[in-house]
Amino acid sequence: MLSTETIYFVVLSAGFALGFGHCIGMCGPIVASLSLSMRGRKVLVPHLLYNAGRITTYGLLGGIMGVAGSFTRVVTEIASIQKGVMIFAGLLIIMLGLAMGGWIPLGRIFGEDCAPMGFLAREFGKMSETRSTVAFYPLGLLLGLLPCGPVYTALVAAARAGMEATHSLNGFIIGMSLMLCFGLGTVPALLLVAKLVDLRWLRSREIIYRISSVMMIAVGIYFVVRAIRY
C-alpha cells in the first residue's frame, strides 16, 4: 500500500497528466467558450476563480466520499444533479456562442458592454466587470459537478481512503485533500487552454469570433445531447 504522502503526490501528478491528456478534451470547450466570450478582456483572474470553484466542489465531493466510504452510494445520489449540470453547461456554451456571434442580444455575458435590449440583456448589463469576474467562482462550483471519468476515478480513490480512515472526520479530511490535490493538478492545462484562446494578440478578431461562435454552438449541442443520453 502507498503511504498517505505518496498518494497525495500520485493524485496530484495524475491530475496534472490527465489535465493535459483528458481535461483539455472534455472540459476544454467550456474553458475556451468562457475565454472567447470575454472578447479580449484579461482571462487569468476569471479562470483562476473558475478553477477555484471547480476545485472547491471536488474537495467537498472528496470529503463526502471519504465520510461515506462508498463511491457508488454517493454517485447514485448526485447522478440526476450531474445530468442537470451537463445540460446547463451545454446550454451555457450555446448561449455564449449565440451571444458572441451577435445572434441573441445579450452582448458579452461575462463582459462589460451589453446592448440594453430586452430584460435579459438589461439584467446582464447590470453586472459590472468586477461582479461578472466574481461570477466565475460560483460557475466553477457548479461545473465542478460535471460528470467526468477521471474525476470519478479520483473519487473512487477518495472513497477507498475514507474506508481506511479511523473516524469520519479523518475520512472527510483525507478524501477532501486527495480531491484538492487532483483538482490542483488539472489547473495548469485548463489555464493554458484559457490563455491560448485569449485572442487579444490578434488584430483581426471578428471573423475568429464568428467562426468560434458557430463551433461553440455545435459543442454546446453536443454537450446537451450527451447529457440527455447520459
Partner: peptide, 13 residues
C-alpha cells in the same frame, strides 16, 4: 482503464 482514453489510475488490489 479505458481503451483510447486516459481515465487515471484505477487499481484493484
Amino acid at each position: 482503464g479505458m481503451v483510447g482514453m486516459d481515465m487515471g489510475r484505477n487499481r484493484v488490489n
